[in-house]
């Protein structure tokens, strides 16, 4: 069943269109930066953006910071919202279930195909932005490794080896996958509740937007640590020296709790649901 879900994901033109759009955003930003050479003032604009002008190798990290807050969660919410509701409204859900595919296995396969999508999207963005970065900004040729940008590390002159950079990028990818799984779990749960994929995606986005607003609201400080988007940008801490684990651990923990609760709810709901569509 997992193979079938993956085949469905990668045989669908939609998957590539979304990935291409995700890649297009950092590319556009890079072209503007490279032609004007006007860096955003330190502390403003996306993380790493002012640093990439001197070192293109950091551009993948900057690209992550660009797509993560809005673009990536939107695409994950759309796909996850469509996962069950889309099959129901296309009339294929009932044919899968009588094949038979057990409802639990179907849900697990859907989740795994969402992970595959997130990985595919992130890797596409990383690869294209790395190439863009090197082509447009060039690489600083210091053999000692990559200098971490001061606006992120608040320490200038720290350098990490290319292997270290790769490791940190790997950690970033893992952290973003976990964050996006939280989004996927919300949308997947709603997808088992309604037969409208648009409704499920909308619902998940409403949760995220509300969470984003509350994160910045001091009056909501009491619940801030439990908001799903609170630690989304904590992956930046992978690029500090030494790596600052506190927020990363908390963020991953919160996402895992959301994941467990919402998947449990989705599972319980889907298992007892009348498939009358």
């Amino acid at each position: 069943m997992i193979g079938v879900e993956l085949a469905k994901l990668f045989r669908r033109p939609r998957t590539y269109v979304i990935a291409a759009l995700l890649c297009a955003l950092p590319l556009t930003v890079a072209i503007f930066l490279a032609t004007t050479r006007i860096p955003p003032p330190p502390g403003q604009g996306g993380a790493f953006l002012s640093a990439v002008l001197s070192n293109g190798a950091l551009y993948p990290a900057a690209a992550m910071a660009l797509v993560l807050p809005v673009f990536l969660p939107v695409s994950v919410a759309v796909l996850a919202g469509d996962a069950v509701a889309g099959e129901a409204s296309a009339g294929t859900l009932r044919y899968l279930l009588i094949r038979p595919v057990s409802r639990s296995r179907l849900l697990v396969a859907k989740l795994i195909s969402l992970v595959a999508f997130v990985l595919f999207a992130i890797v596409s963005v990383l690869v294209t932005s790395y190439l863009t970065g090197i082509l447009l900004f060039g690489v600083s040729t210091s053999s000692a490794g990559v200098a971490l940008p001061p606006d992120v590390t608040s320490l200038s002159g720290v350098t990490i080896s290319p292997a270290g950079l790769a490791l940190r990028l790997l950690g970033t990818v893992a952290y973003i996958v976990i964050s996006m799984l939280g989004v996927a779990a919300i949308a997947l749960f709603l997808s088992t509740v309604t037969d409208s994929s648009l409704g499920a995606a909308m619902g998940a986005l409403a949760v995220l937007v509300t969470s984003q607003v509350l994160v910045t609201l001091d009056a909501a400080a009491a619940i801030r640590p439990y908001l799903p988007t609170r630690y989304w940008l904590a992956w930046v801490d992978f690029f500090r020296d030494p790596v600052l684990w506190r927020d990363i651990e908390r963020g991953a923990g919160i996402q895992l709790v959301y994941l467990a609760v919402l998947l449990g709810a989705a599972w319980a709901n889907f298992l007892t649901k009348d498939v009358a569509n």
Partner: peptide, 30 residues
Amino acid sequence: LPSIGALVEGPGAYPHLSGRVNLTLFDAAG
């Protein structure tokens, strides 16, 4: 269910795939 073939309220298929691919996917799912 493995011993039953069924058609419930109209056929359902993935519209962007060919009929053969659709059947192959359904066959692989079960």
